[in-house]
Structures are given as structure tokens and as C-alpha cells.
Nucleic acid binder design. Structure first.
Lengths: 253, 253
DNA sequence: ATTATCTATAGATCTATAGATAATGC
DNA sequence: ATTATCTATAGATCTATAGATAATGC
């Protein structure tokens, strides 16, 4: 009965009309990789239209200007994932969780592993473009996403200190977390160009995971004893795997 | 006799003609901040001409295209400083020098202190633009400049290990150096937008120096004993001050 | 005489809009 | 009848060049 119930006809599909919200969403999704790759000024409305499979005029039906589309692309790209929130809720702060969360961050930032599998590094590119611009997107992301991690990791650091797993000194826990984060982000950043920038980029991506983990944990002040106890990469990998798989299946983990 | 022998006349000065090499140099110097701020596509030849105080046509007398001018700006901005080479030549690898070189790097990257005083963060911006592009400038810079630091710091790490100032483990000295470098670079990067991105950016710039030094040195594996002995910020500041002042006065330091 | 410099402009894009057309849902 | 979509194009830049002008050095 319904005319377009058959999906085999490509012409029908390509000429099919979408609702305003559907089309709007598709345009944004098509625009993300373009803006991420080339930046706001590096993309033309012509390219945006072509990538989205529509005319340039239609872009302006959905977005008053190229600026507005870019803003929507940024908003879309920094939606805080529900999975992360659920994951963090299930955590009781401890030394073990400190190590695990850092491992998780390392996988996400250095190896681009996310809840939906491995991603193209679109997000870091949008982030750099924003930092070279006004930084608004960067601020929004830290407000929406990173801060959740921060407070949890800070609590884990506190728990580790209470358990005697950290060398005691006067360092600021929040700062130390950011330094770890920064190390990972910079590794990721130097991976962006097709031709490798850093000498250590010869090997595979996960070749850096263990060294940078050790560096960060020592920087945080984890004792050698605690390191031997908690830094077992096989176990860490298994646990993170489980997090990534369970995500989206509700809180029944 | 000579019409423009008087220099008080501004019109004469503004109409004065320069040699090809002088003008070329001035155009490049005027273009650096523009390209650093806005990126290649964010700057028009009109702006470049205005900033250099010449017509657009003259730009094309000196550079075949905007691309070529950009390439020259990059080449100009990553000239390895003679001062650094001289400074590094005068160093004998040791734990003390390891700490000092890291302090020096921190001052340069986080606080923008250089041989000619404090700089605008033009260089890091060019670097980020390059990383979002093909990374050629980044590779060239590491080839020209950073690698000199790397080999010296690696030798310092080796010396520190030999002196028993490092906890002994299997970490890769070169990697560990890069992680330190990355931490500093990322701190710098998040400082770029006018509106601060990171919560820790509330205070003054040098508020981060001590914490990040401690983080890096612990990450490298400096023992608590060696840390107490060598990490005296007053002395470090004095020594770096001396380096910066002596630079350019020849090898007689 | 040479060459540094400018004015004026061609030709190619690029953003955005006006107005026409055709698919959709009642 | 409504609205998603397109074609065609206006108007504003943007890069680059042609050809004219004026300062410089011999």
C-alpha cells in the first residue's frame, strides 16, 4: 500500500523527501567530517551541499548561515554520551579504578577507541580548530564531558592516597589529572597528519599505551608496590572491553 | 642635494623604496602574525598587503602565490636559533642538567619565555595549523630544533640513571622525554584562546611551572632524594636567566 | 636604465536569496 | 494545501596579472 515500502529502487530512494528534522540531521552529520578536516573557512557551502547530497539552497532552508551550521556541528559533536555517565555511576573510587580509568582514557584518546568501536579522529580535529579560534567548543566539551571524568578520577586519587598507594607530597590532584590528560591529548594531536610527525610513530598505535600509562601513573605518584599490583594490562584490557560492550544495555551491568 | 636626506618627513619615509631582499623580509615578517592567528585560509592577500604596508600586486612580485608566501613564513618561523645550539654545546650531561633543561623547556613552552624576552604565542599557533594540515612544518621544526634538545636530554637521563638518581625500570628514555614535552605543549595549547579553557588557568602563568615540573620529573623517575637535591626553583630560575642573558654574546660564557 | 611600486581589473569563487517545481499528507 | 527541494543568479570577495608610474643607482 505505502508507495515507498520497496527500498530496492535507488531512484525512489534518492528522490525521497525527508522530514525537516531528518534532513537537518543528515546535513549536520555530513558536515561534521568536512568541518573537522578543513576547518570552518576550509569548507565551502558547495562542498557541504554535495556531501549532504542536496542543493546549496536547501542548506539555507535549514540553517540561516554557514556559521549557524558550523555551530550546530559543534553542538552535535560534543553531546555527552549517556554511556559514559552510566559507566561512571557504577564506579566506587579506588586505586584499582584510578588505574582503570586512566587506561580507559588512554584507549579513547590515543587509540581512538570509543563506545561504538574505533572512530576517525574527527573530534580532536574539531577541538584543535576551536582552540585556534575562540575556544568555545573546547570549553563546552569540558563542561559537558571531561569534568565528569575529572571529579571521578580526583576521587579515585583521594582513595588511592588514603589506601597508601600514593607517595605523599604536596601535589594538586586536579592539576596532576590534567597533566595526564594533556599528555594523551598531545600524543593524539601529533598523530593527526598522514605523514607521521613524531619518531615514535613508527610502530602500532597501542605500542604507546603501556609506556604512557607508566609515565602517568608515576607522575601521579603511584607507588612501585601498587603499580605491580594494579597495572596488569591484560586485566585492564578485559575490563575496558566489558565496559565498552555493556554500554547502552542499561544499568544492569 | 639628495631629496630624501631628511628623515623627519614621514611622507618621504613611507614612500622610501627598499631593496628587493629588504622588502621581501618585511612582507614575511608582517605575514607571520596574520597566518599564525588565522591560518592560511583565514587571511586574504588584501590583509597581508595592508599589514605589510604595500599593494597586493607587490606581494606577487616577491612571491609567486599566496601559498609560496605561506611556505616562506613557515620557513622563516622555524629557523633553528643559534643561541640554543651554543647553549646546548656548553652542557655536560648530568642529573642537574636534566632538571635544568626541563625547567628551561617549561619556561619556553608554558610561559613563552625565549631568548629575546617573552613572545606572543605565534609559533604554537603555526604548529597547530600545520598539524591540522599536512604536518610538514611540524616535522621540519622537530628536525631543526627539538631533536637537538632530545638527544641532550636523553644523555642527561642516561647520566642521571648512571648516578643512581632514577628509579630503575624498563621505560624508554626517548618516549619519556616526549611525554614531558607533550604535557608542556598541551598546557600551552589550552592557553591559546582569549577566554580560558581550563579551570587551572585562573592564576598566573608561572603557577603551573612547579607542579608540572614535579609531575614530569616523577614521570621520568627521579628519586625523591635527587628531587630534594636538584629541584630548587630559585636556583633554576637564576641559571635560566643567565642562559637567556648570555645568549648571543658568543661562546665566551 | 633599472627596478620597486602602484592602480585598475579580469576571472574565479563563495555565500546567500528569489522564485519555480514537485513530492507529501490531509 | 503544505512544504521539501531545486535552478538560477545577485552581489561580494579573493587571487592573480597587465600595464603604468616613479624612485633609485650608474
Amino acid at each position: 500500500m505505502v508507495p515507498n515500502s520497496r527500498k530496492s529502487n535507488k531512484k525512489d530512494e534518492s528522490k525521497r523527501r525527508l522530514s525537516s528534522t531528518e534532513r537537518r540531521r543528515l546535513i549536520i552529520e555530513a558536515a561534521v567530517p568536512l568541518f573537522a578536516q578543513e576547518g570552518f573557512r576550509g569548507v565551502t557551502t558547495k562542498q557541504l551541499a554535495k556531501q549532504a547530497g542536496v542543493s546549496e539552497a536547501l542548506l539555507y532552508q535549514h540553517f540561516p548561515s554557514k556559521d549557524d551550521l558550523y555551530a550546530e556541528v559543534q553542538r552535535f559533536s560534543c553531546n555527552p554520551s549517556e554511556e559514559l555517565r552510566i559507566m561512571l555511576e557504577g564506579i566506587t573510587p579506588s586505586t584499582k579504578m584510578l588505574v582503570l580509568l586512566l587506561y580507559f582514557m588512554t584507549k579513547m584518546i590515543v587509540e581512538h577507541v570509543g563506545f561504538g568501536g574505533t572512530h576517525d579522529p574527527l573530534f580532536p580535529r574539531l577541538m584543535l580548530h576551536s582552540l585556534l579560534d575562540d575556544g568555545a567548543f573546547a570549553r563546552e566539551h569540558f563542561h559537558q564531558v571531561t569534568n565528569r571524568m575529572v571529579s571521578m578520577i580526583q576521587r579515585c586519587i583521594a582513595a588511592a592516597r588514603a589506601a597508601g598507594d600514593l607517595v605523599s607530597d604536596e601535589s594538586d590532584d586536579a592539576l596532576v589529572f590534567w597533566f595526564c590528560h594533556h599528555t594523551l591529548v598531545a600524543i593524539n594531536m601529533y598523530q593527526l597528519p598522514l605523514v607521521p610527525v613524531m619518531p615514535y610513530h613508527g610502530g602500532s598505535k597501542d605500542a604507546l599505551t603501556a609506556p604512557v600509562m607508566r609515565f602517568m601513573l608515576r607522575g601521579i605518584g603511584l607507588t612501585p608496590k601498587a603499580t605491580r599490583k594494579y597495572v596488569q594490562f591484560d586485566e585492564l584490557a578485559a575490563q575496558v572491553e566489558q565496559w565498552l560492550c555493556n554500554a547502552g544495555k542499561g544499568q544492569d551491568a
